[in-house]
């Protein structure tokens, strides 16, 4: 079989183990998707539903990366690729988290709250 993302043949891995990996990934993703729908349709409290769906989504992302994109901590190329993905994730977290931190702080200090906007709109203009 071909080593992930290199185009070189890997003598240690057989076709069977590759198919097994894809099948595991497929079944796990399927279960997690069904699990998400099941959580949404269930009678659980909304908070629980959201938490369950998020967890299922995260697990499914990990499954895809592991079984389909061949990212793992072992093996030279897979490890390198995984580190790149994690690095991207860190940078995106810094950017998104930083924006949220800055903008929520600014918003708290400069924007009117929604209530006061509504009351300002209801009042007649007095210029």
């Amino acid at each position: 079989m071909i080593k992930p993302n290199t185009g070189e043949l890997d003598p240690q891995e057989s076709a069977a183990s590759e198919i097994k990996s894809y099948t595991t990934g497929f079944i796990a993703s399927l279960l997690l998707t069904v699990g998400g729908f099941a959580a949404a349709l269930s009678d659980l409290p909304t908070t629980w539903k959201v938490v369950l769906i998020c967890v299922a989504a995260l697990l499914q992302i990990i499954t895809h990366m592991r079984n389909f994109l061949h990212l793992s901590f072992s093996g030279g190329q897979s490890r390198e690729d995984l580190l790149l993905v994690l690095f991207s994730a860190i940078l995106l977290t810094i950017m998104a988290g930083g924006t949220w931190y800055i903008m929520s702080d600014l918003s708290g200090r400069m924007h009117q709250t929604m209530d006061s906007v509504a009351s300002a709109q209801s009042q007649p203009h007095s210029r």
Binding site: I102, M103, S107
Partner: peptide, 9 residues
């Protein structure tokens, strides 16, 4: 809208 977000991005 919020013009501060421009500076941020």
């Amino acid at each position: 809208g919020n013009m501060m977000n421009y500076a941020n991005i």
